[in-house]
Computed example of a mutant assay.
Amino acid sequence: MSDSSLILSLPYIQPAQAQKHVTHNEAIRTLDVIVQPTVTEVGRTDPPQDPVQGARYVVGPGGTGDWAGLDGSIAVWEDSGWTVVVPSAGWTTRATDTLIEWVYDGSTWILPGNAVETLGVNTTADSTNRLAVSGANTLLSHEGAGHQLKINKADTAETASLLYQSNWSGRAEMGLAGSDNFSVKVSADGTTWFTGLEVDGTSGMVSFPSGAHVPHHAELGGRWIAYSDQRWVTLSRAHGEVGDAHAGASDTGADPALTWLDTGLYLRAGSRVETLMGRLRADGAEAADLTSYSLRLYFQHGPDTPDGDAWNTDAETTRELIFGVDDAPLSEGWRYLTASFAAYTAPDNGSLVIYLKPGGSYGADQQIVSEIVVGYTQ
């Protein structure tokens, strides 16, 4: 019969052995060291001067004093001396000073490798998505300074990007997709993609491969003449600065005449009119007699002809109302105008025309002063 166990080398009680409790206690002492093994420190080479009972250490290379020749062993202070346990390959222990786990490889204690093939946090990772996280938020923070998230690709033709999905179907992507130029792409179905923005990697030049809508603001301010017959007035072709009088006039009907030659701001097909805002006030010697105003914002267009004069008849001219207001109160103080309407897209090349008609009882010397801004994209 062997004197000790095969795995942990615990001493066996032999037949007819005297003082069996000594052997038994030795086995218990060994188990007390290696079951749930933790040590105070890993790698210390000199024994502490006044260790507490049960203090355990992994002796580092080149042990001195009572630890000489015990490299890699677990030394335990018990009663008034050191009990030594020689580890076997595969044993693990955790150092309480650092909470780092160590593994004995058969000759020395090492830190286990930190590489794993897949890692799933609250979900299952796979061979394609080797790191998978399921949760409401994911936090990547700094450690005292900044923090970089690095996405690396093998070569120029490959992809390094961030992909945004809706129900597992791609909708937007930004990064280096198939080249070293930075791009932003979108898709409505995850199959057909449109590149909205691209930054050249060699020059930094920005391009918009799918086109771009750039916001503009047209200032349509000035003094609007108030005719005593309360006719509609509009901007002339030469847009006036504040203080100029817009003398162009249309008729006095419910809406201004369709065939009106003094057109306003030119817009290309596909332009979008999105906002109208500004302020107005009565002006002139008898400004109190100007009590209200009506306003129309139109898009007006006609056939595209070389001579450019084919809008002279009602049959050749098309007009679409974008915004209108009737009999809005007006006073001598500034009255703010904010128009709410759905964005309008110009169907053809044409002009943005704004008309104003004062209301009240007045002579021909009154005016309305305005500061009006139209916002649009082209």
Rank of each mutant, 00 (worst) to 15 (best):
K153P: 08
A346F: 01
G170W: 14
A254H: 03
D304P: 01
P11V: 03
G302S: 10
G308E: 09
A55H: 11
L31A: 04
P48E: 15
I28E: 05
T234A: 15
T98K: 11
D3G: 11
T345G: 00
T83E: 07
V325C: 04
G146K: 10
Y298H: 14
G221T: 12
A16L: 15
Q300D: 13
D327R: 11
A132M: 02
Y104L: 03
G65F: 13
E158N: 14
T30K: 12
T156S: 13
A115D: 07
K20H: 04
G363Y: 03
V59S: 11
G54C: 06
T202L: 13
P37C: 06
V369Y: 02
Y12M: 08
D327Q: 14
Y266M: 14
S370R: 02
G196N: 10
Q17Y: 10
P51R: 06
I74N: 14
T118C: 00
A285V: 14
D66A: 15
S250Q: 10
E117H: 02
E241Q: 14
N152A: 14
A16T: 10
V242W: 04
V85A: 04
N181V: 06
K357S: 00
T318D: 09
D180H: 04
A249Y: 07
T317M: 10
A95G: 05
V373C: 03
S107K: 08
A226H: 05
D200R: 05
K357T: 00
D180E: 13
L280V: 15
A282I: 04
R268T: 11
N181T: 06
W102K: 02
V273L: 06
F194Y: 12
D255H: 05
G221Y: 05
N25F: 02
P256E: 05
I34D: 07
E78R: 12
